[in-house]
């Protein structure tokens, strides 16, 4: 039974796709809410989570999720103080978290720690247990996102408008942060903490040109991420390149193709004929419709 899961390549594909499907829609919100750097900072704190997991002998994923979450909330708190510009603050926290994580890992008792694996991912080493975790979390995140979709989008467009309509903006934002921390913890295995933000942002950005509603963009971002994972793994096999970076480059390629095709389409549509005067409706009709009292 499950013989096909014995193939590490099948597991790699499945693991990568599982992460991409959750990262796509979530990445759209990262892009819409201009949180790219925030995502980076939280991802960098994941290494501290690994160290904590080893130190406290708890599950690695749990350690990462807890650390990422605590770190995300800390950023939120510090941002409310407004003593530093947001990007300066994120720059400090992001790189300090990475540096502290690296130091913490070397200070730990000499256990075999695959540092490169954490930094750049090790998708070819995805195990059956990992797959279970990936799909469990992906299903959870997508369900939560489906449930929170409208309020989260409303808070993204205008927090005042959302709150005036009775939406609990704080809880919604907290929910989003939890989802982000979960996906980052997952994606670490696949793509590594240094490149996680790419998997969130590039598929979403590629989907933008093709989408005319937020929902379409989320769906297309999930698809773009999936394609990037498949193309990246195949390319990595063919040319013996590192897999995580190959996935990111595949996503970049997709983004460039969509942008180029989109730009050409925009130029073409500019040459559409202008509406003729008869299409513009006459004044009498408008008066009858009550627009010109």
């Amino acid at each position: 039974m499950n013989d096909w899961l014995d193939d590490f390549l099948v597991r790699a594909h499945l693991g990568g796709i599982g992460v991409a499907v959750a990262a796509g829609p979530l990445g759209c919100f990262v892009v819409w809410r201009r949180m790219a750097y925030f995502g980076d900072a939280v991802a960098h704190s994941a290494l501290l989570g690994v160290a904590m997991g080893i130190l406290l002998e708890i599950d690695m994923i749990a350690g990462i999720v807890i650390t990422c979450l605590a770190f995300a909330l800390l950023i939120g708190l510090l941002q409310e103080q407004r003593t530093l510009a947001a990007d300066t603050l994120l720059g400090i926290l992001s790189h300090s978290a990475l540096a502290l994580g690296l130091i913490a890992l070397t200070l730990l008792p000499p256990i075999r720690v695959d540092l490169m694996g954490y930094l750049f991912g090790d998708i070819l080493a995805v195990s059956r247990g990992d797959l279970l975790g990936v799909y469990g979390v992906t299903a959870g995140v997508l369900t939560a996102l489906w449930w929170l979709w409208r309020p989260l989008l409303a808070v993204t467009v205008s927090e005042d408008l959302a709150r005036a309509s009775g939406i609990q903006a704080r809880s919604v934002r907290f929910g989003f942060t939890v989802m982000l921390a979960l996906v980052i913890a997952l994606a670490m295995k696949v793509i590594g903490i240094l490149l996680i933000t790419a998997l969130l942002i590039i598929p979403a950005a590629a989907a933008r040109r093709l989408a005319s509603t937020p929902e379409q963009m989320a769906g297309l971002a999930a698809m773009a991420g999936t394609v990037a994972v498949i193309v990246g793994i195949q390319a990595s096999l063919r040319w013996d390149t590192p897999t995580g970076p190959s996935i990111v480059v595949a996503a970049l390629g997709l983004f460039i193709v969509v942008q180029t095709v989109g730009a050409m389409g925009a130029i073409a549509s500019r040459w559409r004929p202008a509406p003729s005067p008869s299409q513009r409706g006459n004044i009498k009709e408008r008066r009858q419709r009550g627009e010109g009292q």
């Binding site: 892009v31 819409w32 201009r34 409208r150 309020p151 989008l153 409303a154 993204t156 467009v157 205008s158 005042d160 408008l161 959302a162 005036a164 309509s165 009775g166 939406i167 950005a205 933008r208 989408a211 005319s212 509603t213 937020p214 379409q216 963009m217």
Partner: peptide, 26 residues
């Protein structure tokens, strides 16, 4: 209460049509 804010800043990266904006909160 119907609230009409002074302005809302919708980033062009968010593909939002007028129809979809009308259904933003309900």
């Amino acid at each position: 209460i119907g609230y009409v804010p002074q302005r809302i800043a919708v980033d062009p990266v968010l593909p939002l049509t007028v129809g979809r904006l009308l259904s933003l909160t309900a």
